[in-house]
Computed example of a mutant assay.
Amino acid sequence: MKTYTLLGVILFSCILTCDSARGGGRGGSKRHQSRLYYSRMPVMIQHRNSDNYYEHKDGARIVQASHFEQDYMLGRKISFFCMAQGLPRPEITWFKDGVELYYHKFFQVHEWPIGNDTMKSKMEIDPTTQQDAGYYECQANNQYSIDIRGFRTDYVMITY
């Protein structure tokens, strides 16, 4: 069911100023001066209640995730975990510094659907480099909502 704001359907006037290309500005003859055109067009404004989106009972929500901050040793494996629920079952997408991560030989994502409403996802990078430090996010989404968890990671070097 759609809900509309108190204004409902607004009728408004668009004023378009059309200058003639043949001297409608300064110094042009009266015949080619600017004209004003009016039009009345209906505009539908749909009111979106944010509670219906973010708190939808079937919306995607992350129910378990890795710790917020993790350090890793260069050359070792780092992994992050996310588990999300919702109907339909959410999809989980991984991001680093705001950019979606794509598969390459050192990056893997493992997913396990559970029942008809849960998805588990584990993202691994092995071996790690200095460039793997940053801010990672798992994003769970379905047709009703989106939920995001973020993880910060940095490398440590052990010196002897």
Rank of each mutant, 00 (worst) to 15 (best):
K2S: 08
T3Y: 11
L7D: 10
V9K: 08
I10F: 08
S13E: 13
S13G: 09
C14Q: 09
I15Y: 06
T17G: 11
C18R: 12
S20C: 14
G25S: 11
R26H: 06
R26P: 08
G27A: 10
G28F: 14
S29W: 01
Q33V: 05
Q33D: 12
Y38F: 12
Y38L: 10
V43W: 05
I45D: 01
Q46S: 06
Q46N: 00
H47C: 03
H47R: 10
N49L: 03
S50Q: 15
E55K: 11
K57S: 10
K57W: 03
D58S: 06
G59F: 01
G59N: 02
G59W: 01
G59L: 00
A60G: 02
A60I: 01
A60Q: 00
R61W: 04
Q64I: 05
S66K: 03
F68S: 05
Q70E: 14
L74K: 00
L74M: 01
R76E: 15
R76T: 09
I78M: 14
F80E: 04
F81A: 04
A84Y: 04
G86Y: 03
G86E: 00
L87K: 14
L87E: 14
P88E: 01
P88G: 01
R89I: 04
E91R: 15
T93N: 13
T93K: 14
K96E: 13
K96L: 13
V99Q: 15
V99E: 14
E100I: 14
L101A: 02
L101W: 01
Y102H: 07
Y102I: 09
Y103W: 13
Y103R: 15
H104C: 13
V109G: 05
W112H: 03
W112N: 06
P113R: 15
P113Y: 13
P113F: 07
N116D: 11
N116C: 01
T118V: 02
T118F: 00
M119W: 02
S121Q: 05
S121L: 05
S121H: 05
K122P: 06
K122W: 12
M123N: 04
E124G: 03
Q130W: 07
Q131M: 13
D132Q: 00
D132E: 02
A133L: 01
G134I: 11
G134A: 10
G134D: 02
C138K: 15
Q139W: 09
N141K: 11
N142V: 01
Y144G: 02
I146C: 00
F151S: 07
R152P: 08
T153I: 09
T153S: 14
V156G: 04
V156A: 09
M157G: 13
I158A: 08
T159H: 11
Y160T: 02
Y160Q: 07
